[in-house]
């Protein structure tokens, strides 16, 4: 792992490109259109929660891992760092996460 592809740099704060997102929900499922990529994604309650969590304010990777479980209303054991990282990676890969500050 190199520094560049990795969001672990604690000076890097991550937010959401909310302007790029158009959403439409059917029950627990949310269809998300990304204006920048032109691609439609399907989010579940967990991925939507992460989007909402990061749109509140930008956070570093460590903060995300530390605070997301509480935001979800579960303890850290139910929402381990690995899951949070992977979720972050999924959102990052589809181009919805913005490096706000470095």
């Amino acid at each position: 792992m190199t520094v560049s592809a990795n969001p672990n740099n604690d000076h890097w704060l991550w937010g959401v490109y909310t302007n790029h997102m158009v959403t439409h929900s059917f029950g627990d499922t949310t269809f998300v259109y990304n204006r920048q990529s032109g691609t439609t994604h399907i989010f579940n309650l967990v991925s939507m929660a992460m989007i909402e969590f990061l749109s509140e304010k930008p956070r570093s990777m460590n903060e995300i891992i530390r605070d997301f479980p509480a935001y979800m209303g579960v303890d850290a054991a139910e929402c381990p760092a690995g899951v949070v990282r992977r979720l972050f990676g999924e959102l990052d890969e589809i181009g919805l996460l913005e490096l706000v500050q470095s």
């Binding site: 158009v22 029950g27 269809f31 259109y33 032109g38 439609t40 399907i42």
Partner: peptide
């Protein structure tokens, strides 16, 4: 589930991706 129907319809579309946002809105 409407979400399932939407998924299947989008997968059957040759131009949904090309049209982009207007297609998303219209479909939803």
């Amino acid at each position: 589930d409407i979400a399932d129907a939407a998924m299947q319809l989008i997968a059957s579309s040759p131009n949904y991706q090309v049209i982009g946002e207007p297609a998303f809105h219209a479909l939803m």
